[in-house]
Design a protein around this nucleic acid. Structure first.
Length: 571
RNA sequence: CGGAGCGUAGCUCAGCCUGGUAGAGCACUUGGUUUGGGACCAAGACGUCGCAGGUUCGAUUCCUGUCGCUCCGACCA
């Protein structure tokens, strides 16, 4: 392609509404433009890279035996009611109405549609296993779209769904996708880490997320440097530290005045001097309308996701001070669970056997001490509810855990029979029995992956595209564009030759000064630039500048071979 | 949904406090000079100052409302 004919609106200045480097570069390099919050137009260069990412995904999915289909983005609400997700996902569903005022859903994901398809078309174990995928636009009513393509109302996703006859077979499908994802991201030039993850509203038993480590990521991952353990912080656990006081002095619970002391920290200070880990923090939550007490050790933080997973609740929020006063007769800061009856009490595992603890007395200005949790608190059930903190022992190796931020680009789930049962996707097994299909689902945020590549690969001058997903692989930069000049003749010849070898090449035929051309090519980040100017051409040379390497003067007649060799060795 | 900030030329922003009908740089058009790292000179075009009310002789400026955008949060008692 010739640069002068493409819409590549590069910017010298950063648009005001971009916050993170990849978003700034998407705008500055002329890849995207915002229509409105969370909605973007992809310009020619972005489309080229996007198609390359999509094709890598297609090749690898096909290699893994998956079949590409294309499902409607517009979906009937009835199937969402059948699966039960119409209510659970109500907040993210975008809805439209047709002329008859009938409601439709703009699909945020396609478990319901694909399961409906399979329910109708697959009926025997002989037809299994199957894996169907599509690359399609998804719609989600995000609370707050942000960071360009990272979290948008409309985005492109590759979603795949596997159907198997047994858990063992489903495990094979899952593993195959796990490996496929690893290959896909590798080919896109992305470094990813696979981590244990919570399954959230999709449901299911196990899942892994593919994470791109980045300071600007919206997720936190917990990992052990040995590589033995990595998990999303929502799911992460650590070995329980045995620092909690378990000394049962035999002393019975004693109420003592604590005027004005309404935080963990204020009880740590004198005159009380109670260590954080010797306190019980009592949190009050409203879970599906029911008041629930959640007990944590004073030095621990509650992990909301674990709470949701432990209770199976869908509507979870902290109670308001007023609701708390009605339920417990005291205000936040003086709450406790000693002797509380008729209310569900969930406690974190780290409090098991805890004794000699201090907690609120449900009377403003008073706390209890010498609390023996087994003796004094009617705990309904025990759970792992803790938010893991850096430095805690790894559950596998015991060495200190680390935490870093990351961008989620892929997610694989074992779904089990949640959807096949609710939507009637049954098959007849070898024995003639009707059973529900075992499902898995596998997503890749295609547009997010594109931005994650940029977030991970850039420098002060601009994007550094990995060869496999660059909008153009080679940029030819003639420093004069007079049509019969020696410079332009060499440029045109190389352009022809590279095109004939199926190399994606752009010829910068703009009538611009050299500085402008160099800056633009570096901002956009083509993997290789071929500079052709009168000076070097006088010596019979052209200048080959890999985006992340140093400039090489190469004889003009060797340039083609040099580039082909470079591409072969670096992609 | 709560909090904070911002809406002035295609982009980045100034002007507003102290009201008198709008500016700079970049980009764009024309001409000229330039031409190996985001050129220079000259001329030109581009604005319902987000929108709607109010105050005022007069509002980009002050007040109210509204819409949009960005960020933080939606959580620990």
């Amino acid at each position: 392609m010739r640069w002068s004919q493409l819409l590549i609106p590069t910017l010298k200045e950063t648009p005001a509404d971009a916050e993170i480097v990849s978003h700034k570069l998407l705008l500055r390099a002329g890849l995207i433009r915002k229509l409105t919050s969370g909605l973007y137009t992809f310009l020619p260069l972005a489309v080229r890279s996007l198609r390359k990412v999509e094709n890598i995904i297609r090749e690898e999915m096909n290699r893994a035996g998956a079949q590409e289909i294309l499902m409607p983005a517009l979906q009937p609400p009835e199937i969402w009611q059948k699966s039960g997700r119409y209510d659970i996902m109500i907040d993210v569903l975008l809805k439209v109405r047709d002329r008859a005022k009938k409601e439709w859903i703009l699909g945020p994901t396609h478990e319901e549609v694909v399961t409906t398809l399979v329910a109708g078309e697959i009926s025997s174990y002989r037809q299994l296993p199957k894996n169907f995928y599509q690359i399609q636009t998804k719609f989600r009513d995000e609370i707050r779209p942000r960071f360009g393509l990272m979290r948008a109302k409309e985005f492109i996703m590759k979603d795949a769904y596997s159907f198997d006859i047994s858990d063992e077979a489903a495990q094979v499908s899952y593993q195959k996708m796990y490996q496929t994802y690893t290959r896909i991201f590798q080919r896109c030039g992305l470094q990813t880490v696979a981590v244990d993850a919570d399954t959230g509203a999709i449901g299911g038993k196990h899942s892994h997320e593919f994470m791109v480590p980045a300071e600007t990521g919206e997720n936190e991952i917990v990992y052990c440097e040995s590589g033995e353990y990595a998990a999303n912080i929502e799911k992460a656990t650590s070995r329980i530290q045995e620092a909690t006081s378990t000394l049962d002095t035999g002393t019975s619970v004693e109420k003592f005045p604590t005027p004005g002391a309404v935080t963990i920290n204020s009880l740590v200070r004198q005159p009380y001097g109670v260590a954080m880990r010797d306190q019980i923090k009592t949190l009050v939550y409203l879970i599906d309308g029911k008041v629930t007490l959640v007990l944590m050790r004073g030095d621990h933080q509650l992990n909301d996701t674990k709470l949701a997973a432990a209770t199976g609740g869908t509507q979870i929020r902290p109670s308001t001070p007023d609701e708390i006063f009605v339920a417990l007769g005291a205000h936040p800061g003086s709450l406790g669970a000693v002797g509380v009856l008729g209310v569900t009490i969930l406690a974190d595992e780290s409090l098991k056997n805890a004794a000699g603890m201090t907690t609120g007395a449900n009377e403003d200005g008073f706390h209890f001490r010498h609390v023996n949790i087994a003796r004094d608190i009617p705990v309904t059930s025990w759970h792992d509810l803790r938010l893991v903190a850096a430095g805690e022992p790894c559950p596998v190796t015991g060495t200190p855990l680390k935490i870093r931020r990351a961008i989620e680009v892929g997610h694989v789930f074992k779904l089990g029979t949640k959807y096949s049962e609710s939507l009637g996707a049954l098959f007849v097994d070898e024995a003639g029995e009707k059973r529900a299909l075992i499902m898995g689902c596998y997503g890749i945020g295609v547009t997010r992956t594109l931005q994650a590549v940029i977030e991970q690969s850039n420098d002060k001058d601009g994007i550094i595209w990995p060869i496999n997903v660059a909008p153009f692989t080679v940029c030819i930069t003639p420093l004069s564009i007079a049509s019969e000049s020696p410079v332009m003749l060499v440029a045109e010849r190389l352009y022809q030759e590279l095109t004939e070898r199926n190399v994606d090449v752009i010829l910068d035929d703009r009538d611009e000064r050299p500085g402008v051309k160099f800056k633009d090519s570096e901002l956009i980040g083509y993997p290789i630039r071929i500079g052709i100017g009168e000076k070097s051409l006088a010596k019979g040379e052209v200048e080959i500048k890999p985006r992340k390497g140093s400039l090489q003067a190469v004889p003009a007649h060797d340039a083609l071979e040099y580039i082909l060799a470079y591409l072969k060795n670096n992609s």
